[in-house]
């Protein structure tokens, strides 16, 4: 059985917007999953359901073999396993210094003393937030806030990490750093789920892609296959990745996997 399993999940907001409509999805451990779709297609809603903040009205959600019900105990367990980095870091940072904010999740996860320090060090190293640790959150730039928000979630040591548009408003260097963090996590065999509008990144990075539209899953599969399907792209309002466009134009036999590989040939 897969690590995360969604069966016919539907979720409706109190104002009767049907944000998720009969979603079925399974995610393996260690997978790099990308979720794409136009604005308002339900990506953020899906994430909120995955991490247990919202509960679907119908359908089953199974994590690590345990079915999740709308209970406090379940929910607390789920929070340990699935970490969620909000799209807007502003809502996540609350403590009076960066260091305290990062330590919050780690302490809640039961770390103390040496363990806590080691964990903080590792996380701050990974996200390059060491030099910010004494700053109050409102004195940080947006990209810095974003890094601290990621660090704060990583400190809880979740198995699954959900990132909602992690690259929004980041400069090129910050984006590269974030991708590096993701790669490092992948090496630790963590499951990473990302929602993004950056189709070129999805093509190069993900090993599974979910295309959403109006609360439904249009297609799921490997990005290399899905993103060549012009009818699907048209329907989902997506663009073809640059690499594919170029190699089609140049009538290449093979499909290079990354831009770097493409430019080398």
């Amino acid at each position: 059985m897969s690590y995360l399993e969604l069966e016919n999940i539907s979720f409706e907001y109190p104002n009767q917007t049907l944000a998720l409509n009969q979603i079925s999805l399974s995610v393996e451990k260690g997978e790099k999953l990308a979720v794409v779709g136009e604005n308002g297609s339900g990506k953020s809603s899906l994430f909120l359901c995955l991490c247990g903040i919202h509960y679907a009205q119908t359908g089953r959600y199974i994590v690590d073999g345990e079915e999740q019900r709308c209970k406090r105990k379940d929910r607390n367990k789920l929070f340990r396993k699935v970490g969620y980095v909000f799209q807007d870091p502003e809502v996540q940072l609350f403590a009076s210094t960066v260091e305290k904010d990062i330590s919050f999740g780690a302490i809640n996860a039961g770390m103390k003393g040496k363990d806590l320090e080691a964990c903080m060090d590792e996380v701050m190293e990974m996200t390059q937030t060491h030099e910010l640790k004494k700053n109050p959150p409102h004195q940080l730039s947006y990209g810095q806030k974003k890094r601290v928000a990621i660090a704060g979630v990583l400190a809880c040591k979740p198995e699954v990490l959900l990132l909602d548009e992690p690259f929004a408003w980041l400069d090129n260097q910050q984006k590269k750093n974030t991708i590096q963090i993701l790669d490092e996590l992948h090496q630790q065999n963590k499951t990473i789920i990302i929602s993004t509008h950056d189709i070129n990144f999805v093509y190069e990075w993900a090993n599974k892609l979910v295309v959403m539209k109006e609360g439904r899953i249009l297609a799921k599969g490997h990005p290399h296959e899905l993103l060549e399907d012009e009818a699907l792209l048209e329907q989902a309002g997506l663009e073809m990745p640059l690499i594919l466009q170029l190699s089609k134009k140049l009538n290449l036999e093979s499909r290079p996997e990354t831009m770097e590989a493409f430019l080398k040939d």
Binding site: R75, N76, I107, N108
Partner: peptide
């Protein structure tokens, strides 16, 4: 709205009615 989101974010990081931080 912000308060709502903040509370969700706190819950997601294991908040159970008690805030403890590292003592630096």
């Amino acid at each position: 709205v912000h308060a709502d989101f903040s509370q969700q974010a706190l819950l997601n990081r294991g908040y159970r009615g008690e805030m403890k931080f590292i003592d630096a």
